[in-house]
């Protein structure tokens, strides 16, 4: 798996706000194809490269030039791990909605929204901090990274 360079930490925060909006739209409309698209996006970021995240490009071109530059950098590994956690929830949600198990879809999407919003609003990466917890209860999920 290729390694990504460290990133401006405000980029992932911006991206998390966008993810929150997408997931909120899914919850309000039940539009599972949008959730499927988000699932693919999570997978690309987690398993291929963070550079594939379109919100990252929007951030670099439209948001970053308006902000004071920062030398602060955040390692990519925690971010990719968190995208992997998001991928699992979004995948379960998509399967739920698409197969008619709407409650499953709603619960999984709501859980993903909580994680995304915690990251956006509080700067807290739940997946990263809870890595040990995840490892203890779902070793298979934690290992591939």
């Amino acid at each position: 798996m290729p390694k990504d360079a460290p990133v401006d930490p405000r980029g992932p925060r911006f991206s998390a706000w966008m993810t929150t909006v997408v997931l909120a739209v899914v919850l309000l409309t039940g539009w599972w194809r949008l959730l499927a698209a988000q699932t693919v996006l999570f997978a690309l970021c987690a398993f291929v490269s963070l550079k594939l995240n379109p919100w990252g490009h929007v951030y670099r071109h439209a948001v970053q030039p308006r902000l004071t530059p920062t030398t602060e950098r955040e390692e990519a590994a925690p971010l990719r791990f968190a995208q992997g956690v998001g991928f699992v929830f979004a995948l379960v949600g998509t399967i739920g909605y698409a197969s008619g198990l709407t409650t499953l879809g709603v619960v999984a999407t709501a859980a993903a929204l909580v994680a995304a919003l915690l990251n956006a609003a509080f700067g807290l990466c739940l997946g990263c901090e809870m890595y040990l917890l995840i490892r203890r209860y779902a070793p298979a999920l934690a290992r591939p990274q």
Binding site: L27, L28, V106, A110, L113, V114, L117, L118, F122, L124
Partner: peptide, 16 residues
């Protein structure tokens, strides 16, 4: 979906 969204917002606030 609306209730799930509201619930998620409340949970996020509490956890945060």
């Amino acid at each position: 979906g609306i209730w799930a969204l509201l619930g998620a917002l409340v949970v996020t606030g509490a956890v945060g």
